[in-house]
Design a protein around this nucleic acid. Structure first.
Lengths: 158, 158
DNA sequence: TGGATTCAGGACTGAAAAAGTCGTATATTT
DNA sequence: AAATATACGACTTTTTCAGTCCTGAATCCA
């Protein structure tokens, strides 16, 4: 249940790479070759990121993609949502609430799952593209986090 | 990517129900009828929980399942792992580390994902079966949590 | 003892989602 | 005009999910 799809995986790798190239135009071909993954498939992920205006595309020879959003404020949660759409643990802990649930009140795990859902969202929001692309900038933070797992989440409200 | 499988969903509902019945023997049939779900399918989930000794089974007429583990110390994480096996965001952030990765070092998102992985695990460990089965006992905690999302995770170390 | 009830678990099936491919159109550079 | 790139819908293949079916074994009760 909590495995990234290949598309999400490629999107994260691609956006990390583009961010790390800092201003340079990067083609889908270059990304596909660097990571030895399907060009057409990673292109789809890139197009999804483009539609959300996380990156900008330039067509034609010498074209490619550059960052549009500041990597420091672009979270893993946003990348995943761009590629997969809003994902929820179960039907009923999404927008529609209990109404969206096919079990109509028979289900009794909605409330606890909604709580877990919010915490999971907070985790995914807690990691930025900048942190993925420039780990050295965050070294001390990394160490702290690895010791006090999850401490960062505490500083997020909703 | 972060949607529960039906099997996990049923496992959570079933164990919540068994815990709430506190000592009474509950049959798979009863659970299937209460939630209007497939008897054979929920049975598979129950069998997985039995193998991990979270619940005990009794065969024969009048048989069924009872809690074996204390609901207060049994986490959602353990339930999910029993049913689905250890799930990781990507291959390489599991036990095998980079070695388990089919991309052999080409992948550059391993370290940040391993950090996210640990935080997600902490979230799933933060909710117990008791909290799901007896929400009233945790009412004040629930309220606090809903305001300070994720605060509970901070109190967990690894 | 024999039938009803209940769990145990492997084999199988249909449907859906994921992963990847293909083809065509459009934009840009040289 | 030719080469290079993105845009995107349609399509195919592979894998996973969800559910069913069946046989076997344990237990209870009449």
């Amino acid at each position: 249940m909590l495995r990234l799809s290949k598309k999400s995986e490629y999107a994260l790798m691609a956006v990390q790479y583009i961010a790390s190239c800092d201003g340079r135009v990067v083609s889908a071909k270059e990304i596909a070759e660097k990571y030895a993954i399907s060009f057409e498939f990673v292109s789809k992920a890139l197009q999804a990121l483009m539609r959300r205006k996380f990156i900008a595309s330039q067509q034609g020879a010498g074209g490619g993609y550059i960052m549009l959003r500041d990597p420091k404020t672009l979270s893993v949660a946003e990348i995943l949502e761009a590629v997969e759409g809003k994902q929820r643990l179960v039907e009923c802990c999404g927008e529609g609430g209990a109404g969206a649930c096919s079990m109509h009140g028979r289900c009794t795990i909605r409330t606890p799952l909604a709580i877990i859902q919010r915490r999971l969202d907070a985790v995914l929001q807690s990691m930025t593209v900048a942190q993925m692309a420039f780990p050295d900038d965050n070294l001390e933070q990394y160490v702290v986090i690895s010791q006090l797992t999850g401490s960062l989440e505490a500083s997020f409200s909703n």
